[in-house]
Design a protein around this nucleic acid. Structure first.
Length: 572
DNA sequence: GCCGTTTTCGGCCCGACTGTTTTCAGTCG
């Protein structure tokens, strides 16, 4: 069975957990966690890199020891070091680390004194009041753990960005009503525009004695107060989302914003640099001795340390600090660069609005063009069009196009790629389209080789221009299908076609790391909303955010081009 | 275990809050 990066990352994380419980050096533990994170984010399979003879310890965070372990995993499917450790510590012990307020030290103590090996054991011990006798535990901790265990599912809960946005908007509006509040900003992965967020980090500056924390804990959506102090309060909302509010003085605003925006690895890297330069960074500012030398704005801090401003979407410690020093930071794409949307449905298949309504909405956005891309016959659930209906639909598009001023409607369809890689409409019809986009909507479970070949065959069809939502994933709902995207990208490049970054917040497909892979390969992308109604055209901003996370510039995205140039780029 | 424009050895971000303490360890972000 092939070993994927996610499997390797999971094993390394498990190894890190057990080493931590065993009481190993914390930095050694972190080395495994760092490597696991880097590997999980890598767009290319390590197994493939190894078979090409690549030197793994050239990857950041991987040295000789971890490189050896990855090799072992890829070649044998086993990891001796992990298995040895599992023979000493029960395999499910690491599950306990996921329980709030339990870290390595406490888990070790529970295991050694009460023989607790898993969540069930912990449940029993809590109910039997055995914990309060242990050193470092007491009645309060026992109570907290009991409460945590009733809700604990073991699954990490991350909210889609668009869902989190609604929660954040309502809460910040409410907090702004507090007397004395100056600035409120949602930082964290939300500000970095990650596709999902685990919690909300809200930063507040206010006059002294502003009752903002009181206001916060009395928000009607608060279910539980996790902790409460003068500068930091954490609650869980009724929808399960954790929210942290931090209050800092105005002179620390930039430092606090930088700190709470993260990411953690970006901050650690930045602080390490600061230390080398004789400074200390914390959330209150940059300090030389006792003196604050920067901190009012983020830009001041970057500048002091010798960096240009780094956009939040880039702060993942994926090379942005090095690029900044060498003046190689991308000029990230912005929404006003977009000249047209290349993926939109109408009532003809599963959309809610007419061709004209969609075109009017696109015109109102200032677009020069809009492709109408209804489904084809094979996607029956979406009322896909067969040849006969499609011919009539083409005529409808032409009629509306003749009537409309100020925008060009492009004749198109989201053509199904069938299981064998053939297309769902005859060539004679495809040839009449201005642009042909195609997608996988069935047979998600093919092997990597078959799925890849299927799409390669579609890309080899001379009429095809764009391959849509290339991995088929639905965030929190459906895993991506197994496909070799690097091969797909190389073929697209070779054939003069493109991949879509689908801006639907439930898809955001391509992922940021694949956007960057495309850029590195020299393949341009299209950012499209896949709108099924007029208001969905607003999803463009999620696509733009994802593109920015993938280091894309306007020049990497073909629907930033005016129509005339765009048409030229479609020629294969 | 990883890493290097002070280093191939000796570092590795830094602070808030809680509970159990009698001055602090553990957890978390």
């Amino acid at each position: 069975m092939p070993v994927h990066n996610s499997d390797i990352a999971e094993k390394l994380n498990h190894l890190a957990d057990l080493l931590e419980i065993e009481g190993q050096n914390a930095f050694r533990v972190r080395a495994y966690q760092n490597a696991a994170r880097m590997i999980a984010e890598l767009p290319k399979d390590l197994a493939a890199l190894l078979s090409e003879g690549a030197d793994l310890d050239e990857l950041p965070g991987i040295g000789p020891s971890i490189a050896e372990k990855v090799k072992e995993l890829v070649n044998t499917g086993h990891l001796n070091a992990l298995e040895t450790l599992e023979s000493k510590l029960p395999g499910h012990l690491a599950d306990l680390l996921e329980v709030p307020n339990l870290g390595a030290k406490r888990v070790k103590l529970l295991h050694e004194t009460l023989g607790i090996n898993n969540l069930d054991d912990l449940n029993r011990a809590v109910k039997a009041h055995q914990l309060r006798k242990l050193p470092g535990f007491g009645p309060k901790m026992e109570e907290k753990l009991a409460l945590a265990l009733t809700k604990f599912t073991g699954e990490e809960r991350r909210l889609r960005l668009d869902v989190a946005e609604k929660t954040a908007d309502a809460l910040t509006t409410y907090l702004k009503e507090t007397p004395g509040v100056n600035e409120i900003v949602v930082a964290g992965s939300y500000r970095r525009r990650k596709e999902t967020v685990g919690d909300l980090d809200i930063l507040v500056t206010c006059r002294p004695n502003s009752p903002v924390m009181e206001q916060f804990i009395h928000y009607d959506q608060v279910q539980q107060i996790v902790m409460q102090g003068p500068t930091r309060t954490t609650v869980i909302l009724k929808n399960g989302l954790q929210v942290d509010v931090r209050v800092v003085p105005q002179k620390s605003y930039g430092a606090a914003l930088l700190y709470f925006t993260g990411s953690k690895p970006h901050n650690i890297a930045l602080r390490t640099t600061a230390t080398r330069q004789g400074y200390k960074i914390n959330e209150y500012g940059v300090f030389q001795g006792e003196t604050q030398v920067a901190g009012k704005t983020e830009a001041d801090i970057y500048q002091l340390l010798g960096y240009p401003y780094i956009e939040p979407e880039l702060r993942e410690n994926r090379g942005e600090l090095e690029a900044a020093l060498q003046d190689r930071l991308p000029r990230l794409i912005t929404q006003d660069c977009i000249q047209g949307d290349l993926h939109a449905h109408t009532k003809a298949s599963d959309g809610r609005n007419t061709i004209e309504e969609m075109a009017q909405a696109a015109l109102a956005k200032g677009y020069e063009y809009l492709a109408i891309t209804d489904h084809t016959q094979h996607t029956r659930v979406a009322n896909g069009l067969d040849e006969k209906r499609y011919r009539k639909h083409l005529a409808d598009i032409e009629r509306v196009n003749d009537r409309m001023k100020g925008i060009t409607i492009l004749k198109s369809a989201e053509v199904d790629i069938l299981e064998d890689g053939s297309l769902d409409l005859p060539d004679a019809i495809l040839k009449q389209m201005d642009v042909v986009i195609c997608s996988v909507h069935s047979h998600f479970n093919l092997s990597n080789a078959k799925q890849t070949d299927r799409v390669l065959r579609a890309l080899d069809h001379p009429c095809v221009n764009i391959f849509c939502h290339p991995t088929g994933r639905l965030l929190n709902k459906r895993e991506p299908y197994d496909i070799d995207l690097e091969k797909i990208m190389r073929r697209a490049l070779q054939n003069g076609c493109y991949l879509e970054l689908n801006a639907q917040p439930a898809r955001l497909d391509l992922a940021d790391t694949f956007c960057r892979m495309a850029k590195d390969l020299g393949l341009k992308l299209v950012i499209s909303t896949d709108a099924h109604k007029v208001s969905d055209l607003d999803y463009m901003r999620f696509g733009i955010a994802q593109a920015r996370r993938g280091w894309l510039e306007a020049s990497n995205v073909i629907n930033t081009r005016p129509l005339k140039e765009f048409r030229k780029l479609l020629k294969r």
